[in-house]
Amino acid sequence: MGGADASEITDGQIYEAIGMAVVSAQQFENIFIIASRLAIKQANALTIEDVVSINASKALKQPVKALLKELSDVEPIAQLEERVLELIQKRHTVVHRIHEQTGWPGNINNQQKIDLRALCIEISAESLDLHTIFVQLLGQWAMRFPSMREGIEAAKLHEMFRRDRSGL
């Protein structure tokens, strides 16, 4: 009796990919909500005193889809709406509908396992990319406030996710 083919996807690899997809999507959702409530909803704040603070524990309970709909005609949300909606749908597949839509966990063939793992990797990658976009948005917004700019520059946070965003 031989061992598993090297290209065979194991349940462990699927669990790992699911975990990464879920954590990545949650991190994106958190920064999306915070950036939306600060940098987008309060884009016109001129001083730090003008900023209405948010209660993170309450704010993070708001569904991303509801906030997205509320801000759908505001830039840059309008540009990113389709990507965010697609990410939410894919995340819902993995978190809520995995068995119904993929048959896993269960008796599925290796190609189905490959496809499921690829979906999870895609969710992780897209979550990271969108997370970066919203971290940059939040950072750019925060740099307008002198009291925040000093801390951001001192910690070099403004360089953390520097990259060309021209292809939003």
Rank of each mutant, 00 (worst) to 15 (best):
T102A: 06
T102K: 12
T102V: 04
G103I: 11
G103L: 11
W104F: 14
W104R: 08
P105V: 11
G106T: 10
G106D: 04
G106R: 03
G106I: 11
G106W: 12
G106C: 07
N107V: 13
I108V: 15
I108M: 03
I108S: 02
I108W: 06
N109C: 07
N109R: 05
N109W: 01
N110Q: 10
N110M: 07
N110R: 09
N110P: 09
Q111W: 05
Q111M: 11
Q112A: 15
Q112W: 06
Q112H: 10
K113Q: 14
K113H: 05
K113Y: 08
I114A: 01
I114H: 11
D115R: 15
D115F: 02
L116M: 07
R117Q: 15
R117K: 15
R117P: 04
R117W: 05
A118C: 00
A118F: 04
A118V: 02
L119M: 13
L119G: 02
L119K: 10
I121F: 00
I121D: 06
I121M: 00
E122F: 10
E122Q: 07
E122P: 00
E122N: 05
E122D: 12
S124M: 11
A125D: 10
A125Q: 12
A125S: 13
E126T: 15
S127W: 05
S127H: 09
S127R: 10
S127T: 11
L128I: 06
L128W: 13
L128C: 07
D129A: 13
D129W: 09
L130P: 05
L130K: 09
L130G: 04
L130W: 01
H131V: 02
H131L: 14
T132M: 09
T132I: 15
T132P: 00
